[in-house]
Nucleic acid binder design. Structure first.
Length: 251
DNA sequence: AACCTGCACAACCGCACGACA
DNA sequence: CTGTCGTGCGGTTGTGCAGGT
């Protein structure tokens, strides 16, 4: 497929856009509107592929784009919507006026992938610890068996109970109930830090969702909202809850 | 001062999909 | 029905900068 007015013999310019190119593109779009990107490239006198022109316009030149840091509110929205839709960045971007899918995608990668990674590392560490304990205990048991000591049984049972308890504690929990299929598995010990993170940053239920008056009535939304309400964490800023009385999210 | 590292952002690439001839 | 074109999307890579060593 060729698309985008790409002529293979043509060497489209790549790399960062110059001010001059931006100006040409902006003026062209102002005059002729968005769309027909392949002809934009030709008609505006830009040696850029249509695809590149569209991207530049959508992500950088389009009026009304917010620049600068993602606010905690926006972060909360991103988390929630990512829980709903996964990596549907363009869909998520629709609920964040002035933000582009690219921006959100980048933000998620740098902020949350990192978090997930470190959390996974923790898990591995803890798993290894439990395994070590178990192995150590097995060794001890074998030694005791070899010595033919029966009286240690009671102690073993106690120890096994402890191990079992420890294992249960190590059981994976979904650190964020709304994540559904995308839930990030963490150890229970991590929940506290996660909660800290959520509360400290004023995420989720604090002052969110005050965007367009669109209501999400999907059963999924309601279900997730209920899950969130039932969550053990106590989030602050309940007055601004996004879950509306009509049983849907106000977006 | 030089180097390294991590972060934020911009841009590119490949693929999928819908419209249309 | 099929092929082409235009478009959008998600993943990935490149780059510049700031902060740390």
């Amino acid at each position: 497929m060729m698309g985008w007015g790409d002529f293979p013999q043509q060497g489209w310019r790549k790399g960062p856009w110059t001010l001059e190119e931006d100006k040409l593109l902006s003026e062209y779009v102002k005059l002729h509107g968005e769309g027909r990107w392949s002809s934009v490239a030709r008609c505006a006198g830009l040696n850029r592929s249509g695809k590149s022109c569209r991207l530049r316009w959508v992500n950088y030149l389009r009026p009304g784009l917010k620049r600068g840091q993602i606010t905690p509110q926006e972060e909360g929205i991103i988390i929630e919507l990512h829980a709903l839709w996964g990596n549907k960045w363009s869909t998520i971007a629709r609920y964040l006026p002035g933000r582009t899918d690219n921006e959100i995608k980048n933000y998620w990668r740098t902020h949350f992938m990192k978090r997930e990674k470190s959390s996974n590392q923790k898990q591995e560490k803890q798993k290894a610890q439990v395994l070590n304990k178990k192995l150590q205990l097995q060794k001890e048991q074998e030694q005791q068996k070899q010595l033919g000591v029966d009286k240690t049984k009671a102690i073993d049972i106690t120890n096994e109970g402890k191990i079992h308890e420890a294992q249960e504690k190590q059981e994976m929990v979904c650190m964020y109930p709304t994540l559904g299929d995308h839930c990030l598995p963490v150890m229970s010990q991590d929940v506290a830090s996660w909660a800290d993170f959520v509360v400290d940053d004023g995420l989720l239920w604090g002052g969110l969702w005050n965007l367009d008056d669109q209501v999400c009535h999907t059963s999924n939304c309601s279900k997730i909202a209920k899950q969130n309400q039932a969550t053990a964490f106590s989030f602050g800023g309940g007055s601004n809850n996004a879950y509306s009385s009509t049983g849907g999210y106000i977006f």
